[in-house]
Design a protein around this nucleic acid. Structure first.
Lengths: 192, 192
DNA sequence: AGTTTTTTAGGACATTTGTCCAGTAAAAGA
DNA sequence: TCTTTTACTGGACAAATGTCCTAAAAAACT
């Protein structure tokens, strides 16, 4: 069976769960592994699962009108990932989610989540709180696009997540920051 | 007493409420009006209320490092508005919320909302669903910043919300789109 | 209505960022 | 290990966008 101790302890920080409530997870979580480059989700599929990253890195990207890949999100160990927009609306996703390195996931699918929600107040409230946290994260990213330039966003990222930067190909970073690889290369000369 | 029929009917579309559940709102909603230019919220205050716009327009903005006002959101009649990030985290807001024209609001404050949440499953679930919808809206805006240029964002806005564009000073629109007023003026010549 | 303040348009120029490209380096595959 | 593919750097130039500014228009105030 999956070792979901860590995931449980994250839920525990959000809500004062009983052991029984947390143990509901045991039968609902499944395991999945992805090889480097493999896809968890392709655009035009409905996203029906939320994953917890036990090991590895995921990135989410979509295509612009020219067909360039635009990375809109990275997720690392001990973080949740999904196309939340698709999961919520049950519409086809615009994003692809791909493993940047070999990755090990703990999966909670829609039916499992609904079971949790139906099980009572606490899980329902946790769902709201987690959604709120996702909102706040997204809001921060949105603000960084409105008040910072591409190079300032890079500096922020460099300050806060330097350890990750080595792991991520520059082209993915560039589109995540909203600039071209050419320009990121220029910026790197002055910052790093 | 406030006429909150419309607000109720919006909640009704999200959740299958009983009349009694909806009527809980009656004692929890208060009324507030703002004159053009007045502030609903100033930065460095914690946002403790969510408002429903009965009449009028609100905009939310923050300041960048130069002291320029950056508009990050508009809200119109029959929409909800708050500094959601501040409301959620209970940290000081980075935004100011201001009335663009004389505005009439129906206000739900934190305590009132918590009462609703405590009242049972349905309001709890509605809270989650509304948060999800806010997330999806923000996500759309984020995607528009990653995959479109400033002028493309203007064209989208022009197509979808032309009626509002007349009402909003160009300088506010520009920062909302992530460009300078000078540049928006250039864009307008080619589009409009 | 007259006056003052704020907003908008657009010229001239500067800066930032993108495009295209070629050479090199690094990684993946056989 | 060798070969092939993919990723990165940086030059030269082009396009997009910003800065600064002035005059006109619109809005607000008295």
């Amino acid at each position: 069976m999956a070792n979901i101790f860590l995931m449980k302890s994250i839920f525990q920080t959000i809500q004062d769960f009983s052991v029984e409530e947390l143990n509901l997870l045991d039968d609902l979580i499944t395991i999945r592994t992805l090889k480097k480059g493999e896809f968890l989700l392709s655009e035009n599929q409905v996203c029906n699962e939320i994953v917890f990253i036990k090991k590895g890195i995921l990135r989410s990207f979509f295509l612009n009108h020219k067909g360039d890949e635009i990375t809109n999100c990275f997720a690392f160990e001990n973080e949740f990932m999904a196309s939340f927009a698709s999961f919520i609306t049950e519409q086809k996703a615009e994003e692809n989610i791909q493993a940047l390195i070999d990755t090990e996931l703990q999966v909670l699918n829609r039916k499992a989540l609904e079971k949790l929600y139906q099980s009572g107040f606490n899980w329902q409230e946790t769902g709201r709180k987690l959604t709120e946290l996702e909102f706040v994260n997204l809001h921060k990213r949105m603000v960084s696009f409105q008040k910072l330039s591409g190079s300032q966003r890079y500096e922020e990222l460099y300050k806060n997540h330097q350890k990750y930067l080595q792991l991520i190909p520059l082209q993915y970073l560039a589109s995540y920051l909203g600039i071209t690889p050419r320009h990121l290369s220029r910026i790197r000369k002055t910052v790093a």
